[in-house]
């Protein structure tokens, strides 16, 4: 398939435009998702922090973690305050769940990673992700500095898409509109810009065909003719001269051949 100059240039520009906009949108969304995720985590971390403070107040009074029965009410109250919270759990250092907003989960074992994270960085807040949920947690530390367990809060991993799906859809539509609009601008402008080149080449080609067929002279465009056109006019003239000379010579030879 042969492509015109304008089509080649506009295809190149449109391809670069699409790549640029795709990368811009991707990096922009990634940065926004990162900030939004940090903000969501920050909010849930604060919720976890308030629960931790209350539980540690109880621990400092000398109670064992599993004895702090009011903790169940506390975590259920916090879950009820925010419909984005999937669940809140408190587990001990061995990984047994002691309190859970889903009461059926009490007594079960937490994933190994939740225990590992306590060993890795005791005393520091942590965040994890599993297939469906984001997890923020904080270790529960007694007055002697020993890690007794942890409180974790789970929230939907697709929180961002769920909450902002409409807005992102609208932005994507705007993006497609803008790209389509400017792609058309690129195509039209490429045709206009290269139109001059195309027209001049077409005119020179037509002149060449006309002069070679009918005779006459190629005259460079007085308005826009450049050095190439001047040289080309000489090319046409010289080609015409050669053809005429050869034709005259052929006639001359023929004449001599016939007369003899």
């Amino acid at each position: 398939m042969s492509w015109s100059l304008a089509r080649k240039v506009s295809a190149a520009l449109v391809a670069i435009l699409v790549c640029t906009m795709a990368l811009t949108a991707y990096f922009g969304y990634a940065k926004f998702a990162e900030q939004m995720s940090a903000q969501v985590q920050s909010r849930f971390s604060f919720v976890v922090f308030t629960i931790k403070r209350k539980v540690e107040d109880g621990l400092s009074l000398g109670f064992a973690l599993r004895q702090l029965r009011q903790t169940q009410d506390t975590i259920e109250l916090e879950k009820a305050r925010d419909d984005r919270v999937l669940g809140i759990e408190i587990y001990d250092a061995s990984g047994e769940v002691l309190f859970n907003t889903d009461r059926g989960g009490v007594g079960s074992a937490v994933p190994e990673a939740w225990i590992e994270v306590l060993k890795g960085a005791p005393g520091k807040a942590f965040s994890l992700t599993d297939e469906e949920a984001g997890v923020v947690g904080m270790p529960l530390v007694n007055t002697l500095g020993k890690v007794e367990g942890a409180v974790v809060l789970r929230y939907p991993a697709a929180y961002l898409e769920q909450g902002l799906g409409e807005m992102l859809g609208r932005l994507a539509f705007e993006l497609v509109l803008v790209v389509s609009g400017f792609a058309m601008v690129a195509a039209v402008a490429a045709y206009v810009l290269l139109g001059a080149v195309t027209r001049r080449l077409g005119a020179m080609e037509a002149t060449l065909a006309k002069v070679m067929a009918e005779g006459g002279e190629a005259v460079p465009d007085p308005g826009g003719g450049d050095d190439f056109e001047v040289r080309f006019a000489e090319f046409v003239a010289r080609s015409r001269e050669a053809v005429e000379h050869i034709r005259d010579s052929t006639d001359e030879v023929e004449r001599m051949d016939r007369l003899a």
Binding site: M21, E174, V179, A186
Partner: peptide, 9 residues
């Protein structure tokens, strides 16, 4: 073709 759409978006 590249700067205005990037700025707009």
């Amino acid at each position: 073709v590249l700067v205005p759409p990037t700025a707009i978006v």
